[in-house]
């Protein structure tokens, strides 16, 4: 393994960026590829599939076997709103393998009793996200219904390119939200990325069911994400 490539890979890992170190098992030079890039000798769909699954393994390429050392950062979920849906989502997210944190400035909602063992911050999203910025491997779920609380993190998530952005609210509520986001200077394409009504369309009714719909939506967004450079 080339030391320069190892350093580059570690830098990307530290910055929570996905990368694959491609080793030619017949002895050719190693290659480092990022999402949307290609590797010499390995079909592009094989590279893309590895980025989406996050799984390392040996693959067949042109006249040689290659080992794909796939380094995809662990996906995390940031939830704005310490509401009933968030309680169910927090429990399920851990089982599905996601790190999750809940942010809500309303101290009546954001109590440790309601979220035992879950990372919970009773502060404004503006302040929390300055300390722990969103990134492309973060899903942003806004469920307070309150524009004062939800809008800033939604805008921040769309500008950052979070792999998933979802917002709770009826079509009417979302219509008003779209107007506010347009006024804030976001493009139609950016705003169109918001999953609203939030979650997969499975007819979810109770808070627990809505949490299932949101988690399924997040997994789909992660595993089927578009891979552009």
């Amino acid at each position: 393994m080339d030391l320069g490539l190892l350093k580059e890979l570690n830098t990307l890992r530290a910055a929570r960026k996905a990368a694959i170190l491609v080793s030619n098992l017949s002895g050719g030079p190693d290659q480092l590829v990022r999402e949307g890039q290609s590797a010499e000798g390995v079909p592009q769909d094989v590279i893309n599939k590895a980025f989406l699954s996050g799984k390392s393994g040996i693959v067949e390429g042109e006249g040689s076997s290659y080992f794909l050392n796939v380094q995809v950062p662990p996906a995390r979920i940031v939830v704005i709103g310490a509401v009933h849906i968030s309680q169910a989502l927090a429990a399920m997210a851990g089982i599905a393998g996601f790190d999750i944190e809940i942010i809500d400035p309303r101290t009546a909602f954001a109590t440790p009793e309601r979220f035992a063992g879950i990372k919970l911050t009773a502060n404004w999203p503006e302040d929390v996200l300055k300390e722990r910025p969103l990134d492309t491997f973060t899903a942003l779920v806004a469920v307070t219904h309150d524009p004062k609380i939800d809008d800033y993190p939604l805008i921040s998530a769309l500008k950052t390119g979070c792999f998933y952005v979802g917002a709770l609210g009826s079509r009417k509520t979302h219509g008003k939200r779209v107007e506010r986001l347009q006024a804030a200077g976001l493009s139609g394409e950016q705003i169109g990325r918001i999953s609203a009504p939030i979650g997969l369309d499975i007819g979810a009714s109770s808070p627990g069911e809505i949490a299932v719909a949101i988690l399924g939506d997040i997994i789909q967004a992660l595993r089927r994400r578009g891979l552009s450079a």
Partner: peptide, 24 residues
């Protein structure tokens, strides 16, 4: 710590380093 970070750190200290990887 991640072994890949350790490998870089040890090399930075001037040590010879080998990496073993489970491939299959």
């Amino acid at each position: 710590d991640n072994p890949l970070d350790i490998a870089e750190r040890w090399r930075g200290e001037g040590r010879d380093v080998a990496i073993a990887t489970v491939m299959e």
